[in-house]
Lab assay of single mutants.
Amino acid sequence: MIINNLKLIREKKKISQSELAALLESSRQTINGIEKNKYNPSLQLALKIAYYLNTPLEDIFQWQ
């Protein structure tokens, strides 16, 4: 199971779900699903999230 700190990191950087979704060329619903652990992002999307949040991938997503 993958757990994530996306919501915590996103809020700390003062970025809304909609703003992050626009940067990622994704939907706000996708970001919401990832944050609620209802959806696991593809590797490509996970890497883009890490890039746009300027945060190491392993700080956002962790195996448990």
Rank of each mutant, 00 (worst) to 15 (best):
M1D: 04
M1L: 15
I2C: 14
I3Y: 07
I3E: 08
I3C: 13
I3N: 07
I3G: 07
N4I: 11
K7P: 03
L8Q: 15
R10A: 04
R10Y: 08
E11R: 09
E11Y: 06
E11Q: 11
E11F: 06
E11P: 01
E11V: 10
K12Q: 14
K12F: 10
K12E: 12
K12C: 12
I15E: 00
I15K: 04
I15W: 05
I15M: 14
S16G: 07
S18M: 12
S18Y: 11
E19T: 12
L20C: 05
A21F: 02
A21Q: 02
A21M: 03
A21H: 02
A22D: 12
L23N: 07
L23Y: 12
L23R: 10
L24R: 01
L24Q: 00
E25P: 14
E25K: 15
E25G: 15
S26I: 15
S27G: 06
S27I: 06
S27P: 11
S27Y: 04
R28S: 13
Q29V: 10
Q29F: 09
Q29D: 14
Q29C: 13
T30Y: 15
I31M: 03
I31K: 01
N32R: 15
G33Y: 13
G33S: 15
G33P: 01
I34F: 04
I34S: 02
I34D: 02
I34L: 07
K36F: 06
K36E: 15
N37L: 06
N37H: 09
K38E: 14
K38W: 14
K38N: 11
K38A: 11
K38V: 13
Y39I: 15
N40L: 14
N40P: 13
N40D: 09
N40I: 15
N40E: 14
P41E: 03
P41H: 02
S42H: 06
L43W: 13
L43R: 11
Q44G: 12
Q44F: 09
Q44H: 13
L45Y: 06
L45I: 08
A46V: 05
A46W: 04
A46M: 10
A46L: 06
K48L: 09
K48W: 06
I49W: 02
I49R: 00
A50T: 03
Y51G: 07
Y51W: 11
Y52G: 03
L53E: 01
T55N: 01
T55Q: 05
T55Y: 06
P56Y: 06
P56D: 09
L57N: 00
L57C: 08
E58H: 13
D59P: 02
D59Y: 09
I60L: 12
Q62F: 07
W63V: 04
W63P: 03
W63F: 08
Q64T: 12
Q64Y: 11
